[in-house]
């Protein structure tokens, strides 16, 4: 295991980018705010995240993994139990303008224990605009429509949206960057109970701070 980390470190430090291809590896720590159904189901948590991104020409593939430990907010209604929040995102983007990328993605979220919160999977379609501010510095905003949601507890979501903000800064040309990501997500889940439709929205926001290396 130590050898594997050593090898990875050497690759990161000495690796040179392939022509027209860039690979970015990142690790970070995230803060999360999660709400579901009503204001009394309110959780806060934190945990590690990991990112892998590959860019080749106009295409970009990005994978994100989150593992968060969520605890009931102090203002939440008891008794609520803590749970672990695992999420995996994959997004494939194609740059259509110099700063604008159209992205299609898929996300899957697991909650453990499953009764504590809603596990789901969904597809996303959105755009991302990234503005280089200086060598090694960039800011980006993104938004996506969340569609085809599938909830472990049943129900459907006719509307869902994501917002994102990313800021990155690194010395020199930015091979190593300090990054900050903000993700806001709202999914208007609806279920049917005893023949009546219930609105059980899910809303989450994440702040992630991490370090990426590009090679």
């Amino acid at each position: 295991m130590r050898l594997a980390w050593l090898t990875l470190g050497l690759v990161v430090i000495t690796g040179t980018p392939l022509r027209a291809q860039a690979v970015t590896l990142g690790a970070g720590y995230a803060l999360a705010d999660y709400r579901e159904q009503a204001d009394f189901l309110h959780f806060k948590g934190s945990g590690p995240t990991a990112t892998v991104a590959v860019e080749r020409g106009r295409l970009a593939l990005r994978l994100d993994a989150w593992h968060l430990d969520m605890d009931p907010d102090k203002n939440a209604a008891p008794p609520l139990e803590p749970f672990t929040f695992d999420q995996f995102n994959v997004r494939l983007g194609i740059r259509v303008m110099s700063v604008v990328t159209v992205e299609a993605g898929y996300m899957k979220r697991w909650m453990e224990p499953s009764r504590a919160a809603q596990s789901l999977s969904a597809a996303t379609l959105g755009v991302r605009a990234a503005y280089p501010l200086a060598p090694g510095a960039e800011v980006a905003v993104r938004t996506a429509y969340v569609a085809a949601s599938d909830f472990a507890g049943g129900g459907s979501a006719p509307f869902g949206i994501e917002l994102g903000l990313t800021a990155a800064y690194g010395p020199g040309s930015g091979r190593f960057r300090l990054t900050g990501d903000y993700e806001f997500q709202r999914i208007d889940r609806r279920t049917t109970q005893n023949g009546s439709r219930l609105s059980v929205p899910i809303q989450s926001s994440f702040a992630r701070v991490g370090l990426t290396v590009r090679f």
């Binding site: 705010d33 709400r35 579901e36 159904q37 204001d39």
Partner: peptide, 8 residues
């Protein structure tokens, strides 16, 4: 969502 009491 107003139903969720705002956001973080």
């Amino acid at each position: 969502s107003s139903k969720l009491g705002g956001g973080g």
